[in-house]
């Protein structure tokens, strides 16, 4: 096995592996010679993604059953990753998330709870395990998918947005903590993506990124050691404007 730094294997763990953005990003790492460990609860679909990455890029690909909500299993998941590639993987990419209709989360607290757990608590739980291991090794990278929806609460998706906002803050703190250990943390903030989440919505086409484009942007950001990356880059400026609208005005708006 290709061993770079001490105890580090040139491998990347990709959670929420069945999403199109995860698949595209995993492809970029595989193209760069990384072994890939996929984690997702949908093992049948994950097998297709694993076969695809292996066939296209000719790298070792492992598919491990992963349940973001089964917090107690997360320490064991890390051990399973070690066993799969014979050491601690170099990095971790977190893509799982969940965005039902806002109205549904308002009507049903159980659903709101699930949104918070899948977008926030579950990520915190798995990062808890991997961050400690990377910190002890004093190297590695972590990238997690947050959202521009977490930058400001809007009536159309603030349940999801608040969970992502919490995640953005968590990642910022984690980055601060791990900086001294040489572990890099990248917050990914996608704007509109052409995925099943947005399929059929009337969105302005130039603002919508394909999963392939997102994968390239995320890979490049991790390689360059960026702290926060907007996918596509112009979302940084769109959000700058949105975040500077005074609250007394913002509360009257429909965005």
């Amino acid at each position: 096995m290709d061993t770079g730094e001490q105890g580090s294997v040139k491998a990347v763990v990709v959670l929420g592996a069945c999403s199109t953005i995860a698949r595209a990003t995993a492809g970029e790492f595989a193209r760069d010679g990384y072994a890939v460990i996929l984690g997702d609860p949908d093992t049948e679909e994950m097998a297709c993604v694993a076969a695809d990455l292996h066939t296209r890029y000719d790298v070792p690909v492992h598919a491990l059953d992963f349940d973001a909500l089964d917090f107690a299993s997360h320490a064991e998941f890390l051990e399973a990753c070690r066993r799969a590639v014979g050491g601690l993987p170099e990095g971790l990419l977190v893509f799982f998330g969940y965005m039902p209709e806002q109205a549904a989360t308002q009507a049903d607290f159980a659903l709101a709870h699930r949104v918070i757990d899948l977008n926030f608590t579950g990520v915190v739980s798995i990062l808890h395990v991997f961050a400690a291991a990377f910190e002890a090794r004093r190297s590695g990278f972590i990238a997690a998918l947050s959202s521009v929806a977490g930058d400001r609460g809007r009536k159309t998706n603030y349940t999801y947005g608040s969970a992502k906002g919490g995640l953005t803050v968590f990642l910022s703190g984690l980055r601060n903590r791990l900086h001294d250990a040489g572990v890099q943390v990248t917050t990914v903030k996608p704007g509109f993506m052409d995925t099943k989440m947005t399929f059929g919505m009337k969105l302005p086409a130039p603002l919508v990124a394909s999963p392939e484009q997102a994968g390239k942007d995320i890979f490049a950001a991790v390689k360059r050691g960026k702290d926060v990356v907007h996918v596509r880059w112009f979302w940084r400026y769109i959000m700058m404007i949105i975040c500077h609208i005074p609250e007394w005005q913002f509360k009257k708006m429909s965005l």
Partner: peptide, 17 residues
């Protein structure tokens, strides 16, 4: 979006996708 390659037999040159 269902564009996964499943296997490649280099000997026969046969791609399953």
């Amino acid at each position: 979006r269902l564009n996964r390659m499943i296997a490649f037999d280099a000997e026969e040159g046969v791609l399953e996708c």
